[in-house]
């Protein structure tokens, strides 16, 4: 199985780039995954990633896109609380790409 290299240690990921052991996540790793995804992490990306991680900690799953957007609206302002803006941040989709960077498992299903 393939792995990311973080400060000399390896963090295993699955065939799609999602890390397999969620406890191995770190901010450095997030930057590395983001780079592989061609996402340049700025403050707003971090805002989303942090929210995802907090939500996951409480609910054991990523939030619905709508719930995420609502949260973003509250913290970043209404003009940024849109699906479109989320896709600007994470072109491959807030649910999947942002989850990958946040070290969460890939959401599965018809989504």
């Amino acid at each position: 199985m393939a792995a990311y290299e973080v400060n000399g240690t390896t963090v295993e990921h699955d065939e799609e780039g999602y890390i397999t052991n969620l406890s191995e996540w770190s901010k450095e790793l997030a930057e590395i995954i983001a780079k592989a995804e061609e996402v340049d992490m700025n403050e707003e990306h971090w805002e989303v990633v942090n929210f995802l991680r907090d939500y996951y900690e409480e609910y054991q799953i990523a939030p619905a896109v709508r719930v995420l957007i609502k949260a973003v609206k509250k913290t970043m302002g209404p003009e940024k609380g849109s699906n479109k803006y989320m896709y600007e941040l994470f072109p491959y989709g807030p649910a999947k790409q942002a989850c990958k960077i946040a070290g969460l498992p890939k959401p599965t299903g018809c989504i």
């Binding site: 609910y59 054991q60 799953i61 709508r66 719930v67 599965t108 299903g109 018809c110």
Partner: peptide, 30 residues
Amino acid sequence: EIIGKVLDTGNNLGLQEKALRATLESLEED
């Protein structure tokens, strides 16, 4: 993988009751 999740949690997503309830409540607010 998805069928396994349905057998374990009741849905394709792996959405547990607590998260489902929170989502639905959020929608009611909306």
